[in-house]
Design a protein around this nucleic acid. Structure first.
Lengths: 173, 173
DNA sequence: GATAATTGTTATGGACCATATCAAATATCG
DNA sequence: CGATATTTGATATGGTCCATAACAATTATC
């Protein structure tokens, strides 16, 4: 340890630079300097992701759907007749963790596991009628509330550009 | 439940549309259709964030720094003399969860808690000499390996545009 | 000087993620 | 065919991250 414990004046350097905040007698709080942090793409990316998910949850409050659940319903709808392993793996969900997720969706009668006759090990996933209806409503909520808010902040063309760059990162990285 | 259990032919609709995959006799796996999922900004955003963090961890393997730890070191460096509550809250970390993080960094002699003489409740955070040295090396690794890879994939101008849009989302959402 | 608020801390529970393991069913191959 | 390996869904378990309540020490407030 090279730091003198119980130092406060820490005269060392006037590193407090501009606007030099005085040691004691702070104002109402004095916001911290983000510094290079606001240039770290990973940091901003994470922050943005949290905000987007948070907004998604608010928009979906009436349907009680998380982003992960919504993605499962979307994928099952577009790929009927697939089993748990296939759906889970393309979503990056590990099979063991997918079980509880499906238990939840199935208990709410949004999707169903059907024992395949071709391969009696696997469970074919299908949306129930209620699941299809809920998903349809979810899509509308996403479009009219969630994505609409994003368009407000970014503008449609920027939104498309953003999606393109994120896809590049997600795929070619 | 409106779904007939133990159905497989599921003739219902030939929803398998194009390229109609036959019921049994699958090829090597037949990739699933992402469908609207690839248009969901939240989904792609999360995917990209995971990839970026994963790459960050690889680049930092020699220094054993996580993104969160790196952000703490950066923030403490730019804001010396702040206490735990201030550092934690501007990073979106809850005070209770920040304790273990600091225990870790302090046990590795990267930063130190100093009891303030102004307010003997609070702990002033400072980087140790080793902490400054490690952070300097970390910055170089981030620049030469991590951000360099991002520039390869996106190009410098796109990277700047991406950062700008993500900041907008992170702040004005 | 009594009461309220703040700081760091502990304890605790939930959500998410990862690994090992298992029984049932299927595939593989001698 | 039959022994062995593989696959599928499932359970158990542990780790990490995130959130809340509560506490002692200290400080602020009135």
């Amino acid at each position: 340890m090279t730091v003198s414990k119980t130092a406060e004046k820490s005269s060392e350097k006037p590193a407090e630079t501009a606007k030099g905040r005085k040691d004691a007698a702070d104002g109402p709080g004095e916001a911290l300097q983000l510094g290079e942090l606001s240039e770290q793409l990973g940091y901003v990316l994470k922050r943005a992701q949290l905000k987007v998910f948070e907004n998604f949850l608010r928009c979906m409050a009436s349907l009680q759907l998380t982003p992960a659940q919504f993605s499962v319903l979307l994928l099952v709808e577009k790929n009927p007749g697939r089993n748990q392993t296939e759906i889970a793996s393309t979503l990056g969900i590990l099979r063991p963790n997918f079980v509880a997720m499906l238990d939840n969706l199935e208990s709410r009668d949004l999707c169903a596991r059907i024992r395949s006759t071709n391969d009696r090990r696997s469970h074919i996933l299908v949306l129930t009628d209620k699941g299809k209806a809920v998903l349809a409503r979810a899509k509308k909520l996403v479009a009219t509330k969630h994505e609409a808010r994003l368009n407000e902040v970014l503008g449609p063309s920027n939104r498309a550009a953003l999606l393109g760059m994120l896809s590049k990162i997600a795929n070619e990285f």
